[in-house]
């Protein structure tokens, strides 16, 4: 309990720090901060209006205070270009990002764990010699480049998948859930998911493999053999269960990391997610939107880290059940 409380406090501290850094970044950068987001074709009147609207005519500490109060209340301001609340815009695309990320992560980890355990058993054979460099290469490839190659082959050349976006022209949905169950949505999702999965599977695979190799040498696995337990029990119930601990943590961390890495994959596939929102906002100097999108990504990232820590505590009795002599 105390451990969890400490972790939550720490997460809040990091969130506060990041929000503050963001505030300072957007306001203290060299040059006139207004230049970053006010087009010089605007009239002086319009500029003044914007300054007041964003509170930029006030002293910095007042701005900071307001910023923090608004933040806590979940108010991230209005998009400068779209004239809509940032929160609303972010919430609109966040589900797309989560669907993309979670689908890819789940497939990647399911595959990675099984393949990793298998490779551990193949230790010292040619299978291992061939597979490991290939897996490393998938880790070394820029994910957006994988996406480009797949797009060129499977979408443009073979025409199997649409070239981008989340829905075909003319299709609209009444609700997110309706969208989620529509085949058209999944057809658009397929290629980004394949790309992201290929990029993500290397980590759980290599992690699972090295954990398995280590655990299989542990004394309790030898004991399980002496007990005459079945190979299935030995490998799955004892070895894999122990080797799984760090992989489970990596999964939770992976949610944060890949949401944060999604900026490129979503751009390649024009996937309407939060990463692409950030990129377009930054490109078009839509400062409130960029700030909001970034903060949301940070929240997902930091919370995923928190969950990873707690997950480890839940899965490892050595942490969750203190020693009681």
């Amino acid at each position: 309990m105390e451990y969890i409380a400490r972790r939550v406090l720490y997460t809040l501290f990091v969130l506060w720090a990041v929000a503050s850094i963001l505030f300072l970044m957007f306001r203290l950068m060299p040059g006139d901060p207004r230049a970053a987001f006010i087009d010089n074709t605007f009239t002086a009147e319009q500029q003044q209006l914007l300054l007041v609207q964003f509170g930029l005519d006030q002293p910095l500490y007042v701005q900071y205070g307001k910023y923090m109060v608004n933040l806590v209340q979940g108010d991230l301001g209005m998009s400068f270009i779209y004239k809509r609340p940032v929160v609303e815009m972010v919430m609109e695309v966040l589900p797309n990002s989560l669907v993309l990320t979670l689908t890819s992560l789940i497939i990647a980890y399911a595959f990675g764990m099984v393949a990793g355990a298998f490779l551990a058993r193949m230790r010292g054979t040619w299978v291992e010699g061939v597979t490991i460099p290939v897996v490393l290469a998938t880790r070394a490839a820029p994910e957006f480049w994988l996406g480009m190659v797949f797009l060129a082959i499977f979408s443009f050349s073979l025409g199997w998948f649409p070239a981008g976006g989340a829905s075909s022209a003319g299709i609209t949905y009444d609700s997110f859930w309706q969208q989620l169950v529509s085949p058209d949505y999944w057809r658009h999702l397929a290629l980004p998911v394949i790309t992201l999965t290929l990029y993500l599977q290397g980590l759980p695979l290599l992690l699972m493999r090295s954990n398995m190799l280590e655990v299989m040498e542990d004394e309790f696995v030898t004991m399980a053999r002496m007990k005459g337990l079945s190979e299935w029990s030995i490998v799955m119930r004892h070895a894999a269960r122990n080797a799984l601990l760090p992989v489970a943590t990596a999964f939770a961390l992976g949610v944060g990391f890949s949401i944060s890495g999604n900026v490129v994959i979503e751009t390649v596939f024009s996937w309407p997610g939060i990463g692409r929102l950030l990129v377009t906002a930054v490109s078009s100097s839509d400062y409130p939107l960029a700030q909001g999108a970034f903060l949301f990504i940070t929240v997902v990232f930091v919370v995923a880290n928190l969950i990873a820590d707690m997950l480890y505590a839940v899965l490892d009795p050595r942490v969750s059940h203190g020693s009681a002599g």
Binding site: V14, L15, V18, I21, G256, G275, T298, F301, N305
Partner: peptide
């Protein structure tokens, strides 16, 4: 470490 890398 709490800052998402690429977005930042």
């Amino acid at each position: 470490l709490g800052i998402p890398f690429l977005p930042f």
